[in-house]
């Protein structure tokens, strides 16, 4: 399993609209997302991403089974941007 830790840059955290952008980008991947070492959830589900309650500046962990890190890197880069400002 490969992982990436990333600090969420969105000004208001992963509330509805940034979560929608992130979950849409995660569609078709097997990437999961977790906070504080809790059980990871499906990154492509807006509801599960929102349920994490991720605030601005908090660290999350993205993970995927196998060695394909392309989606992992793309999603980590997305979370490192302020999606509220886009």
């Amino acid at each position: 399993m490969r992982t990436r830790n990333v600090i969420v840059a969105s000004a208001s955290g992963l509330h509805a609209r940034p979560a929608r952008v992130f979950a849409s980008a995660a569609a078709g991947t097997n990437v999961r997302i977790a906070k504080n070492g809790a059980e990871p959830v499906d990154a492509s589900s807006i509801l599960r991403v929102m349920s994490l309650g991720v605030a601005h500046g908090e660290e999350v962990t993205l993970c995927v089974e196998g060695d394909d890190t392309t989606a992992l890197d793309r999603l980590a880069e997305l979370l490192a941007r302020d999606l509220d400002a886009e």
């Binding site: 929608r20 979950a23 849409s24 569609a27 589900s45 807006i46 509801l47």
Partner: peptide
């Protein structure tokens, strides 16, 4: 809203 949001956001799968 969660039900409708889940249905719409996942209907292209």
């Amino acid at each position: 809203l969660p039900l409708l949001l889940a249905f719409i956001s996942e209907r292209d799968r």
